[in-house]
Write a protein that binds this DNA or RNA. Structure first.
Lengths: 162, 162
DNA sequence: TGCAAATATGTAGCTAACTACGTAGTTTTG
DNA sequence: CAAAACTACGTAGTTAGCTACATATTTGCA
């Protein structure tokens, strides 16, 4: 806590969250590199999802990973270019494009499993402090689902004006 | 926890952090709007810093808010365009540009104080769960300072190979 | 059953941060 | 005291998400 911003606390929380996210992503990339694997952390959600649920449409993937479908499409394009995934038309619904891991994609997942183990261990070290970051995120997301930040602010504003 | 990604836990933590950050920023903007104030959450760090430390150079601001200087410069440009801040050359060091709040900027800060109070209260509601998010961030950043994510992964890797 | 509404995908362009690089002053040092 | 190294600032271009809009199927209901 050497600077004004950290002292301003909650008001800069969005900034702090983003900074932490960037830092972890950058090191994530370096870790893959150190294993000689060319894999970007942002691809993880798609690859992992298709590993767990082998055939999904674009929108299904988007929902699983919690991104919008345009963001998902751009990830899918990169992964198709890398030959890690492929797609085929859904015969029952001509609108849908069904995605699945290629043989190459499956092989890569197998190679990454031990790396993921290491990452999880390192992240456990980092986050298993007296306030667990992952649990805190879960809890805040749950609170947000109950009532959003904006709605809460509106209610507090109204109460004050009485 | 309805989808594959949330279940993958720590590996998608960077994604989760960013999403939460975006969500809070978007609602932040709406809250300012609901008070009829045209202020973007991303400007907060600069404005707040200049309010607390009235005259700072570009790089000093960047350090205070924890951004790179190019990012800071683009924020400064927006704020100068809004007439919330101004700059003058440092007479002792011709390289430096010293920034400060304009009268208009100071007035806006005064107007925003009650909004910030409301925001802090709403954020306290949201984050004061059994694992406090802000404290968790502090703790993880402290852990990262002791030893980064990459270094930790390297050590775990080496131990395994023995 | 045919048309309106909904759903699935795609494209274009925005945003808020970043890195890499260049230039101009300042400081240090041989 | 001049050259080298450093510091401050700025610009250009990248990235990883987003929203808004467009098009093509499919579904549902009057």
């Amino acid at each position: 806590m050497t600077n004004v911003i950290d002292e301003s606390g909650l008001l800069a929380i969005s900034t702090r969250l983003q900074r932490l996210s960037d830092q972890l992503r950058k090191d994530g990339l370096k870790i893959y590199e150190s294993y000689g694997i060319q894999f970007e952390p942002k691809w993880f959600p798609v690859i992992y999802t298709l590993h767990k649920k082998p055939i999904l449409s674009v929108v299904e993937i988007a929902n699983e990973i919690g991104y919008t479908h345009p963001s998902t499409i751009s990830l899918l394009k990169e992964l198709e270019k890398k030959n890690l995934i492929k797609s085929k038309k859904d015969k029952d619904d001509e609108r849908k494009r069904l995605l699945y891991l290629t043989r190459e994609g499956e092989t890569l997942v197998e190679k990454m499993q031990p790396i993921w183990d290491v990452m999880v261990k390192a992240l456990e070290q980092l986050t298993n402090t007296s306030n667990n970051l992952m649990k805190a995120i879960d809890e805040v997301e749950y609170q947000l689902k109950l009532q959003g930040f904006y709605q809460r602010a509106e209610l507090i504003k109204e109460n004050k004006s009485k």
